[in-house]
């Protein structure tokens, strides 16, 4: 059981690292939101899954409830995270920021 927990944790950390690198490396506002939105959500799913699995190791009603609450965090982040990214992109379009293209860089 611990091995599965460790695998999930490491997977989640890989996603988080990818997200952090992506925020720094991507060229403009919109493409930076892409790793920030997607990879963090997946990374959170993996790490929270690991935490939930770790808590329900000693099987009882209390630990099951705690695991359920941890998975509830994932549910809320799955709903709010994409909405926040959507709102930020919307605000960027409204403010008149154009997406980055390769052609512009050549000029």
């Amino acid at each position: 059981m611990n091995i599965i927990v460790i695998i999930f944790l490491v997977l989640g950390l890989i996603f988080f690292t990818g997200g952090s690198v992506g925020i720094i490396r991507f060229p403009d506002f919109y493409s930076r939101l892409h790793p920030a939105g997607k990879l963090d959500t997946t990374g959170l799913l993996m790490t929270m899954l690991a935490a939930a699995l770790y808590t329900i190791q000693d099987f009882s009603t209390e630990s099951l409830l705690t695991g359920l609450k941890i998975m509830l965090i994932v549910v809320f982040v799955f709903i709010t995270g994409p909405t926040a990214t959507h709102a930020i992109v919307d605000a960027g379009i409204r403010a008149g920021l154009r997406p980055w293209t390769k052609k512009e860089k050549a000029d």
């Binding site: 809320f76 709903i79 709010t80 909405t83 959507h86 709102a87 919307d90 409204r94």
Partner: peptide
């Protein structure tokens, strides 16, 4: 200035506020 006509954000807001 700010004219959001956004069903997604409204619906998410309505869903998340009671929690």
């Amino acid at each position: 200035l700010w004219t959001p006509y956004d069903l997604i954000i409204k619906t998410t807001g309505r869903f998340i506020i009671p929690f």
